[in-house]
Design a protein around this nucleic acid. Sequence first.
RNA 1: GGUCCCAUCGUCUAGUGGUCAGGACGCUGGCCUCUCACGCCGGAAACAGGGGUUCAACUCCCCUUGGGACUACCA
Length: 471
Amino acid sequence: MSEKQKIRTRFAPSPTGYLHIGGARTALFNWLFARHKGGRFILRIEDTDQLRSTEESTRAILDAMTWLGLNWDEGPFFQSQRVDIHRRMVKKLLEEGKAYYCTCAPEELEDKRKRALAEGRKPKYDGTCRERKLTKTAHAAVRFQCPDTGTTIVHDLIKGAISFNNDELDDLIIERADGFPTYNFAVVVDDALMEITHVIRGDDHVNNTPRQTLLYQALGYPVPRFAHVPMILGADKTRLSKRHGATSVMAYKEMGYLPEALVNYLVRLGWSHGDQEIFSLKELIEYFCLEAVGKSAAVFNQEKLLWLNQHYIKQCPEDRLVEEMMPFWKNLGLDPSDRKLARNVAIDLKERARTLQELADASVFYFQDEIAYAPEAAEKFLTAEAAGHLRAIADGISALTDYSKEGIEVFLRSFAGQRGMKLKFIAQPLRVALTGRTASPGIDDIMVTMGKDRVIRRIAKAVEHITRHRA
RNA sequence: GGUCCCAUCGUCUAGUGGUCAGGACGCUGGCCUCUCACGCCGGAAACAGGGGUUCAACUCCCCUUGGGACUACCA
């Protein structure tokens, strides 16, 4: 591999489900590495498992990649459309005596494996068909003949040199009885033919790497550089899975996360750049390197993701935030078509929501004609005494000429002052009257966003409520 | 069972033989304040254990322990 050779990385998911968190980080690392080096990022769908692969999954994975902003330069290539190439390579190995047909029944193999395990022996293929010189028959699979002496060393960019005794490796199947290649073979052929220079993938593949190295060598291909990134674990330190909560990238979208938050969170799982926590995409591309990728597994921590998401919501330009909010508002049955209102609502709430869903939930009162009062809030603040103040405030507001944040603030303060009260004693009843809750954005912000008429109407409703329930 | 990988606060991590072991999330005390947030200031919190090597180990080596991955005609 010459130094001048362009870096080429790839992400090669199997379309047997959605894009999950771990896969997304692998894709991200590959993408960042390629972008940092000015190389190319290739997307290849590994769909040689005809039974489990689905088009919906492919679609879902592509959508998730797109949402995250991980654009690919080539592909998507489909491994299933390359089986003629794989078969040709299998044939080549067969002809060169580096592979052989195997007619052992899968059930029989499974049996032997179980027995070996039970007896404490290693469950590797016993080589029954190795010397039988079988020719092609209907249900024959093809096995690669692994050397049973010597060692294979994997030079991993993250973990360093890892050595394996070849006698630990068994004669793996490279072509199934159905004529389709298996993963370990197809991945080698495709990576080689697509001239992938750096294979960046999950740690769970390290044990496959020596066999793949042997395959590269048998096929006469240069061996790419490998970088095995550590796993992402759940809170119980086992491999992240559904039982740890949401693992689908798109589920995070639906829960109201911004893609840049997820990207920023994911990149910091295993990679770091000094003490920096917040990274723009530009910075990531500039700083990313494999040397700074750690060796140990990382636990997925929802709290930190929430913090980052909150950060990016605060950072989000208002117009984009409104766009991002639309599906969430609609889901709640709200009507956000008044663009100006929607925008002001987003501005009022962007500093107090960790997710878009939280923002939507907190914004309901802005859009409703009739609000519901939280029982404890009404109990505590919508009192007979408050009714008097509220009535006076409504009158004051309708006479208010400067209906702005500042004007309202001045009015409320002087109103409270005249009655010899602290602002808080009128702010809370007013807040409950306007929002139905005790926690909300600033009173003045709410009033400006809702508009004078609605505010007056809502205060009147609250007064009505009080006279009906108190007095 | 075998093979391989990993090991700094609860979590994500900085550290590359000599540091009061730093930052972030979370937790927590305070300030700000019309509530809730935001923001600001402070606090508690870690080098798994044992051997070496060295004048000196979080840092290098070995062992133990603990965790994880793989062990398919899945990828």
